[in-house]
Design a protein around this nucleic acid. Sequence first.
DNA 1: TAAGATTTGTGCGTATGTATT
DNA 2: TAATACATACGCACAAATCTT
Lengths: 87, 87
Amino acid sequence: MAAEIDYDSPTPPYRQIAAEIIRDIEAGVLRVDRPIPSESALIQRWGVARDTARRAVRYLREEGYAYTVPQRGTYVRDRSDQTQEVE
Amino acid sequence: MAAEIDYDSPTPPYRQIAAEIIRDIEAGVLRVDRPIPSESALIQRWGVARDTARRAVRYLREEGYAYTVPQRGTYVRDRSDQTQEVE
DNA sequence: TAAGATTTGTGCGTATGTATT
DNA sequence: TAATACATACGCACAAATCTT
């Protein structure tokens, strides 16, 4: 917890951030239909630029871990059914 | 007075706006504990986006020139004592 | 009591420019 | 060239608190 970005890692910062959020989702810390940390929160939590925080969130969407409601926020997506995406 | 934003300058717009406000503070045009121009006022005065106006105000806070009261406004801070920040 | 305006807080969408790898 | 990261700027929408009418 409260890990820092490892800029020496081959894993880019946005993936490290996404990884922690995924761990929180799978650990039940972040619940379905509840918001994940906002961009601003991620920026402060990790000390990264907005672009990086946004990449992390975008990655979570692409991986099916979250969904975004425009102008509202990004929430944990229910993956109880299709854990595997067919696309 | 009534200068325009110089988009060719290496100084970003938010810093140009902040600079004018600082001049007004140091010239006594803006007094201690009196409000500085609101975000809306800055948007109209300079023709910039809210994000830019907010950056200018945030910069003034960070530099110790102002303090913000949520939902009230941002006011000129008394710097008579610690003109120099120790941090 | 209620409505409206004002001001800041928050969140996201988008774009450009620079730098590094 | 492409991906990544950071800084900046513009746009839109809604919430919350405050102040006025």
